[in-house]
């Protein structure tokens, strides 16, 4: 059983973003890290056409007891991890509650309706204010910008996973991350992934009940 006890069972996590951001990959890595600590993990996600530029979501349920529904009940998320800022709000409106924690990447991806000028994309300040209003513990990090510095924006995912590890909220350990990456990627990619993980982890420290903006 895990070294970090779950604060709730099942612990419900939503990983959200936009098709093409590597949402599925991130949820797979996280889930494989968790299963290594002896938990039951249930992951629900959608693939295929629903991914093309649309909003995507993975639901991850962590439990010491059993598998659970691959869809989290409405209003029952414990942690929402968003690879794109407005997607955090979209998920909070369905799965949020007074205790939910959020980790948000601040780099926007504009919907086609915004690109065409039919819709407005809120400013990052407005987005932050709304996320904070719905989530008493809200972290914001500029994962994509940090990833670009590392040479590949896709590493933004790994920075987010590192940041989740830094929260101390779940049993997500560096050693497990390393093993999971070694299992799923060619060995040459390990160092840059570990570097991204460490950057993420150092951006967050456990700090309960606070709004924490490191973007």
């Amino acid at each position: 059983m895990g070294k970090t006890q779950l604060s709730k069972d099942p612990y419900n996590m939503v990983v959200t973003g936009v098709g093409g951001q590597g949402n599925v990959m991130a949820s797979r890595v996280l889930s494989n890290m968790l299963i290594r600590n002896g938990y039951y993990v249930t992951v629900g996600e959608t693939f295929g056409a629903s991914q093309r530029g649309g909003s995507v979501m993975s639901h991850i349920r962590v439990s010491a007891q059993s598998v659970w529904s691959p869809q989290i009940p409405k209003g029952r998320a414990d942690l929402i991890v968003s690879l794109e800022p407005v997607e955090a709000i979209r998920v909070l409106e369905i799965y949020g509650n007074q205790k939910v924690k959020t980790l948000t990447n601040t780099r926007p991806i504009y919907p086609v309706g915004v690109i065409s000028g039919e819709l407005d994309y809120p400013s990052i300040e407005e987005i932050k204010a709304s996320v904070k209003n719905l989530s008493p513990t809200a972290w914001f990090i500029d994962a994509t910008d940090q990833a670009i510095k590392l040479g590949n924006p896709v590493l933004g995912n790994i920075i987010m996973i590192g940041a989740m590890s830094g929260m101390g909220e779940l049993p997500l350990y560096r050693e497990d991350f390393k093993e999971v990456i070694l299992d799923s990627l060619p060995e040459g990619n390990l160092n840059v992934n570990l570097k991204a993980f460490d950057i993420g982890a150092s951006m967050l420290r456990k700090q309960d009940g606070a709004v924490f903006d490191v973007s």
């Binding site: 936009v18 649309g54 819709l119």
Partner: peptide, 9 residues
Amino acid sequence: VVVPDRGRT
């Protein structure tokens, strides 16, 4: 904030 719809593309 009003969250803009994200149409598929």
